[in-house]
């Protein structure tokens, strides 16, 4: 039987190499493309009738739009509107990556640390650039809270700096770990179902429950990833 981590293995489909760098089209890339296609179809096909009273699909498309729009309005404020397309794309990309991964035999690109880290790093970099662009060198005040006694600076500044720099790592690891562990658990329990024969109905019932839980986690982690990005954006725009 295959190892529980077998599902995370990357298999090149079309080997491509440019300037000595491997950029092969892999199963991971395939599912990224599938995800982008599905998101676009879901959102554009849903609202194609532009109905005043939305149908099922239009309602869902509008719901995702308003969900992210409200999240930005509540957590970033009016200035966040400019970043809505990016946050929305981020949310949909992670959400669809997580949800498509729940379909058996698919590949979950959000269970790869390099993917989640790249996304988190883009957020981190973008937020830092926005912070310096809006506040200039004053953005360094971010690492020393207003009103704190100057004597605490030697302790506070390193702490704030470390917590700021660890943001992309915590953001990336949270999503990666949740998706990876969830998939491993599902795989291991599924292995028990096969191995235990008739008595396998017990782990099968458990598996059904965990699957429901994993769907919840898939949505929740997409939400968490996005809302943390919003909060970081808020910090960069408004400081503390």
């Amino acid at each position: 039987m295959a190892s529980p981590v077998e599902q995370f293995k990357i298999k090149p489909i079309i080997p491509i190499e440019i300037g000595g760098i491997d950029i092969s089209f892999t199963n991971s890339a395939l599912f990224m493309v599938v995800s982008v296609a599905l998101i676009t179809v879901f959102l554009t096909h849903g609202v194609r009738s532009r109905a005043m009273v939305p149908g099922r699909w239009q309602s869902m498309a509008e719901l995702s739009y308003e969900f992210v729009a409200n999240m930005i309005r509540d957590n970033v404020g009016a200035e966040g509107r400019r970043y809505f397309p990016f946050i929305f794309a981020l949310f949909m990309f992670v959400l669809f990556g997580n949800l498509i991964g729940m379909i058996p035999m698919t590949f979950t690109y959000t269970s790869h640390i390099i993917v989640t880290f790249a996304l988190a790093f883009v957020v981190f970099l973008g937020v830092t650039v926005i912070g310096f662009a809006r506040h200039g060198l004053h953005f360094f005040r971010f690492f020393f809270p207003h009103g704190a006694p100057i004597l605490t600076a030697p302790i506070l500044i390193p702490i704030e700096l470390i917590s700021y720099l660890s943001r992309p790592f915590s953001l990336a690891v949270r999503l990666f770990a949740n998706m990876t562990v969830g998939h491993i658990i599902l795989k291991v329990i599924a292995g028990f179902v096969v191995a235990m024969g008739v008595a396998g109905v017990v782990p099968l019932a458990f598996l059904a429950g965990v699957t429901v839980l994993e769907f919840g986690i898939a949505v929740l982690q997409a939400y968490v990833f996005t809302i943390l990005s919003c909060i970081y954006l808020h910090d960069a725009i408004h400081m503390h």
Binding site: T26, T40, T44, A61
Partner: peptide
């Protein structure tokens, strides 16, 4: 490297699709 490359391609593609097509429509 291949994952980063394709992530960049697909995510930029998605961003453009969202910003130009889906978001204005909705």
């Amino acid at each position: 490297s291949p994952q980063l490359f394709w992530l960049a391609v697909t995510f930029i593609g998605l961003y453009v699709l969202m910003a130009r097509v889906s978001i204005p429509r909705i």
